[in-house]
Amino acid sequence: MNLRLHVWRQRNAADSGRFVTYPAADISPDMSFLEMLDVVNEGLIARGEDPIAFDHDCREGICGTCGMMIDGQAHGPRRATTACQLHMRTFHDGDEITIEPWRADSFPVVKDLVVDRTAFDRIVAAGGFITAPTGSAPDGNAIPVPKTSADLAMDAAACIGCGACVAACPNASAMLFTAAKVSHLGLLPQGQPERYARVRRMVSQMDAEGFGTCTNHFECEAACPKSISVRFIARLNRDYLRAVLTGGGEPARVEGGAG
């Protein structure tokens, strides 16, 4: 099939960027979206033009590296599908496709469709972990975890950190990503000691990164390649409120007493 692509081209962060239209000829429906871009790039290289830069690595929907707005939808029109797993059979001959990078001030454009998502790493660094230094662990079965908690934690842990939730959210909010990590760890018994400190720290880092706030549009869930549920956002709100109301996770006041 033959397509017309309107692709965002931007040399670097300083460049202002523009849309450029490219034809994509003889595309096989079995190709993935990224393979289609490979073909377009081979054509560009042959003509001596700079190929379109886009992030990708595993190409099997698990690393979370790829991501672009395809016709106004994060990762394209198929639900629960990353761009690398989107196949061209989803499109029709003659389609015009607009391809844009994730748009959020916290995800500055690096080049073309490549953005910088290190803000997510910093949110995790602020508290998205369980402190369990190597070697300090008790036997794996010493802490039974109810299957329902383990399963729900796994649902949340499935997040691949792709950033589609931010890209799709009308407010550019990172709530779904943050909620997924807070919930994954907060649902497990191992995660309890740091539960409230974690939620406070992660939320405050999320805010500091300049993401928007959640007004419950639920676009994030629809765009999420791993179908992370917005219920986790409610859970995040709940945990955050509980932390604030009970003083949970606040640094303990050191009482000066007779030593």
């Binding site: 972990f129 369980i130 369990a132 190597t134 070697g135 300090s136 662990a137 008790p138 036997d139 794996g140 079965n141 802490i143 039974p144 975890v145 109810p146 299957k147 383990a150 399963d151 934690a153 796994m154 842990a157 994954h184 760890l185 497990l188 191992q190 995660g191």
Partner: peptide, 21 residues
């Protein structure tokens, strides 16, 4: 030791109904 370490970090391994790995 690896399994112990990973469980302590919160890796959501599959569980039986009784809560065991």
């Amino acid at each position: 030791n690896i399994i112990d370490q990973c469980v302590a970090q919160g890796v959501p391994f599959a569980r039986e109904y009784g809560g065991m790995l």
